[in-house]
Amino acid sequence: MKELRLVVQKFDPFSDAAPRLVEYAVPRREGMTVLDALLYARDYVDHSIGLRFSCRQASCGSCGMKINGRPRLACYTQVDELGAEKVVAQPLDNFAIIKDLVTDLGSFFQRHREVTPRLVRDDAQEQDHPTGEYLMKPEELSRVLQFTYCIKCGLCTSSCPTVATDERFPGPQALAQAYRYTADVRDQGGAERMAELDGTHGIWRCHFAGSCSYVCPKGVDPALGIQLLKRHVMSGRPPHSKDDATKVWKPAEKQQ
């Protein structure tokens, strides 16, 4: 059986002075993902490999790591598609390392929370106790749909050259979600959301390197969302009027 050379960056901040690369021989088979190879190495060769994964189908975003130099999901990357004899797995850049391939996404999730990633209504009573369902047309949905596919895996933020140098930059994931909610016709919180992001360390720190969109495994295209946010700021017009959000479908008994 053909063997795969799997190289894993190992580093325990509590006991190691520096990261080191360790090579494992793994039996290679057709259709094998990088996660399969890592699990084989962990189960049969070195039980100490630190590895995080869950769904194995690119839905949970747990197994993001740098594979052969580029951020990818280990479960969504087949060994064959890499076209290399050697697979090198390293932790995601720009995230603190907990151990080996496991990175700390805590600050990343915090950035996400800071852009108010939910529909906001002017009416506090309506916000907590909606009187009905808010309606969208298909074309209004298509404006935000691809941004809703984000699984918060951190690949975009890991690839971003601005995140690499500016700790206060929210990162492509959070900004793409800011666009996703601001452009949603059911949302009325765009102005407040943008007041936070229209600053030195906000959307204007993005210089459109496009790497976030390049590495995104879910087709979110964060770079597009961020540029569209800039467009809304520069044009002085919100993505939609506040009145757009008034179309509410109420259950039959409430309509009477």
Partner: peptide, 30 residues
Amino acid sequence: SGAEGKAKNRRGLSGWLNPYHYNFERWAYV
């Protein structure tokens, strides 16, 4: 302290100076 810096893993200048493995726009950016 050295290990702490490495554990942070923020790329710094090398993060934006190195476009290798990325897209054409990233090369233009650098």
